[in-house]
Design a binder for these strands. Structure first.
Lengths: 120, 120
DNA sequence: CTGGATCCTTCTTGATACTG
DNA sequence: CAGTATCAAGAAGGATCCAG
């Protein structure tokens, strides 16, 4: 009927695909923030820019490897920006872009729903 | 720092865990609707009850196996209800529960964001 | 500190065939 | 129709070591 899930799955790593001849825009959103890590990362970035290690700690102690992979994808989707400071020791800060901040309603709604669900 | 992602991951199949001593309720939500299939399934169910095969077709031609797995998890989380009609041929209908319908804001916001993102 | 590169194990998913 | 069972392939994730 459509190939949007294929697009979606490839989107989780094989980026750059457009297709989406589906009518279900939900799948588009999932292709960008889908997965278990990204929404959490983005949620923490709502508070402001954060450094790499800080993000690792806040995201349930994600391993550097996973964090790097997720951040790269988010960056290539234009959701976050990456700023490298030429210092010693190195410092890299991640920040939401304009597009990234537009996800705020989704993330906040998810947080609120989670709170309510948790307390039954 | 916390084990919420562990909880979250187990939540994707090993259900029944509470823990969540994190402050990030987003992870709670993700433990329920996380993954690539569930939000799409739920989105389609917003329109009303649907039969098994109908759901398969609408969710990017998901295989029966995947659909069964996802539906079972959603059911055990109290998000959807499953009604079996004693007929020939068999008919099973899935429907959002009260809790499930409370996800509507999230799903609609995701759809809207996807539309906007798609058109840049 | 911020990752890149590998290796290796586990989980997830698809394909296929079969049943009530 | 609405699943279930099984097998095999592939992807995802953890651990570890190394580098600018």
């Amino acid at each position: 009927m459509n190939d949007s899930i294929e697009t979606l799955k490839e989107g989780r790593k094989g980026r750059q695909r457009k297709a989406q001849r589906t009518g279900c825009a939900v799948e588009v959103t999932l292709s960008v923030i889908g997965g278990v890590w990204k929404p959490v990362i983005l949620f923490h970035l709502l508070q402001g820019k954060l450094r790499f290690n800080e993000l690792c700690k806040r995201t349930s102690s994600a391993t550097p490897r996973m964090m790097t992979l997720q951040l790269r994808e988010l960056e290539s989707d234009g959701i976050i920006s990456r700023t490298v400071y030429a210092e010693v020791p190195p410092r890299v800060e991640y920040e939401l872009t304009e597009t990234g901040r537009s996800l705020e309603p989704i993330l906040l709604t998810m947080r609120d729903w989670g709170s309510r669900y948790q307390s039954q």
